[in-house]
């Protein structure tokens, strides 16, 4: 459909228009990504070059050692393993439990509206306000300094339930009726028919969960008191101190910390777009 439309434009002798669209997109992309370009460039600069006026775009000498030195400054391998665990469990959890809850919300039951609103309500509560109460809850569960404390509170989220419900609603009701007549139970239907149909919606939910957890700072900082439980975002804090910010190291670390999420996005990109496409629109 897209190609068809474009071809018709081409036919309408409007190659200038197309040039213009590409150009504006290019400009947009450059502006949007300038901060990342700057991050990369700083991560390769010598300390004394960082504050040059006018700013240099390309480092004069490429100081690759910034990366190895930044890596040596903290226990990054532990942080990466922790962050992977802390990000993956909620990702899988939100896909799994989110799907279950979303499925329940597609079936009519008493109080479903109120309950759904309560789920949505969680998006209206600032997490900063619940930080201290949550610390007390985790302490009573003996979950401070454990992976449980860093993951279990996030194995389901209102956003995941919301997205998946929107998607499930777009699947025609007849499917389930037909399946039921064939003697297929609700869970069989969910796992064998509905979920395979919603692969991309699941990917979307998973990606957002992963991003959210990978980039979390404050929860991981407050709920752990041992270096061995720290995550990469908390690790980033070592480059800032009263004696100033160590810009080159910090930018080098920012680069390798962001890399896994970018790679993940590259992998799931197509399904992600499809996922949004199918869940986001139908009311």
């Amino acid at each position: 459909m897209l190609k068809l439309e474009n071809r018709s434009i081409l036919r309408k002798k409007n190659s200038l228009g197309i040039m213009f669209i590409y150009l504006s997109l290019l400009v947009l992309v450059v502006i949007i990504n300038y901060p990342f370009f700057w991050m990369l460039s700083t991560s390769l600069k010598a300390r004394s070059e960082v504050f040059k006026i006018p700013p240099t775009l390309i480092p004069r000498n490429w100081v690759w050692s910034n990366y190895s030195e930044a890596w040596a400054l903290a226990d990054w391998s532990t942080y990466f393993v922790n962050t992977a665990i802390v990000a993956v469990i909620p990702t899988v959890g939100q896909m799994f439990f989110g799907a279950l809850a979303a499925y329940a919300f597609t079936r009519p039951f008493k109080g479903s509206k109120v309950l759904f609103l309560m789920f949505l309500g969680t998006m209206m509560i600032p997490s900063q306000a619940t930080l201290v109460p949550n610390y007390v809850i985790l302490k009573n569960l003996k979950w401070i300094n454990t992976y449980a404390g860093l993951t279990v509170p996030f194995i389901s989220s209102a956003f995941a339930v919301f997205m998946l419900r929107q998607f499930f609603l777009s699947v025609p009701r007849d499917y389930e009726d037909a399946a039921t007549i064939d003697g297929c139970g609700p869970f069989h239907f969910l796992f064998r028919i509905l979920l395979p149909l919603s692969r991309s919606a699941l990917v979307t939910v998973g990606l957002f969960a992963f991003m959210d957890r990978w980039n979390d700072f404050i929860w991981a900082l407050i709920m752990t008191t041992k270096d061995s439980m720290r995550t990469v975002q908390v690790g980033m804090a070592v480059f800032q101190s009263e004696s100033g910010t160590e810009w080159t190291y910090m930018m080098a670390a920012a680069t390798f910390v962001s890399l896994p999420v970018i790679i993940l996005f590259l992998f799931v990109q197509r399904q992600f777009i499809e996922g949004v496409m199918m869940s986001g629109v139908k009311g």
């Binding site: 439990f97 989110g98 279950l100 809850a101 499925y103 329940a104 309950l115 309560m118 789920f119 969680t122 509560i125 306000a129 619940t130 109460p133 949550n134 007390v136 809850i137 279990v152 509170p153 996030f154 194995i155 389901s156 209102a158 339930v161």
Partner: peptide
């Protein structure tokens, strides 16, 4: 289906918020 998600939301958001 709802129990796990509802528990999480109840404990870590609403319990905390009620405390708030």
């Amino acid at each position: 289906c709802l129990a796990p998600s509802a528990t999480i939301i109840l404990v870590f958001t609403y319990m905390a918020f009620i405390f708030c």
